[in-house]
């Protein structure tokens, strides 16, 4: 039985993989910078201004301000998750990039760690692009919203790690659709994003808090952008750190099991 929880040996060389992805990202920056920008506008107009006309406010907060942190959190989730599922799978399976990299002093642990760091960085970049748009609409508060940037890295690392676990076990690129539609899409809707978690039946509230990573990310993000900081932030943060640590280790071990035979 392979040990999924053994601590992987990662060196600083992981940053070389991260750097490779960064270079590719900025080489095609026009394509890459456009989606988060458009996404921010689309959500703000469709849901914020559209639905917001009817739903004036939630718990005394203007509706647009209520969903602004959710837009950021969903973007963190999507960018890291899709980068480390479809993106990593293409690099691993179709481009054979991982095979090429492990023929150099890089180990498979370095390569996967680099991919995960990159997934998290992509989340950070998306948040950095979206923040000015949201700030321009006056729906987030300075200066606490700046903390969304480091939070994006942590949240991104969590979703990148979860994504990489699926990439490590998926038989083909098509089956990656299952986690996308069965996990990511429902999570984007039911994690206290567009309506408060408290509207759900109590059982679902507990399930959301116990198992849905986005719930915790949205909660912290909202505390930062409203701002409405409470002691609960620490609990949410601890939940995210623990889950990130577990999936980060498991993801690397699963990938090692898949690629090193």
């Amino acid at each position: 039985m392979y040990r999924f929880w053994s601590i992987p040996r990662i060196t600083r060389r992981a940053w070389k993989v991260w750097h490779r992805n960064l270079v590719v990202f900025f080489r095609t920056w026009k394509v890459n910078f456009f989606p988060p920008l458009i996404e921010a506008f689309l959500y703000l107009f469709a849901i914020g201004m559209g639905i917001g006309t009817y739903v004036k406010e939630i718990d005394g907060i203007p509706y647009v301000n209520f969903i602004a942190p959710a837009i950021l959190a969903i973007s963190v989730m999507n960018s890291a998750f899709f980068e480390c599922t479809y993106g990593s799978y293409v690099r691993m399976y179709y481009q054979k990039s991982f095979d090429a990299m492990i023929a150099t002093p890089l180990s498979i642990e370095d390569v996967i760690a680099g991919e995960l760091l990159w997934g998290a960085t992509r989340s950070v970049l998306y948040v950095i692009i979206m923040l000015p748009v949201l700030a321009a609409f006056g729906v987030i508060s300075f200066p606490t919203y700046l903390l969304a940037i480091p939070l994006a890295f942590l949240g991104g690392l969590m979703f990148a790690s979860i994504a990489m676990c699926f990439t490590a076990i998926t038989p083909s690129i098509d089956t990656l659709n299952y986690p996308s539609f069965l996990l990511i899409t429902p999570m984007a809707l039911f994690s206290g994003t567009f309506f408060p978690l408290t509207l759900l039946p109590v059982l679902f509230q507990y399930i959301g808090l116990a198992f849905l990573p986005l719930t915790h990310l949205v909660a912290i993000m909202r505390m930062l952008t409203l701002p409405a900081l409470t002691g609960l932030l620490v609990l949410h943060l601890i939940w995210i750190i623990l889950v990130t640590a577990v999936f980060y280790i498991v993801a690397i071990n699963l990938m090692r099991r898949r690629l090193i035979v």
Partner: peptide, 9 residues
């Protein structure tokens, strides 16, 4: 390697 694994990016 036997398989061509140049980086297409």
């Amino acid at each position: 390697p036997q398989e061509t694994n140049l980086d297409p990016d």
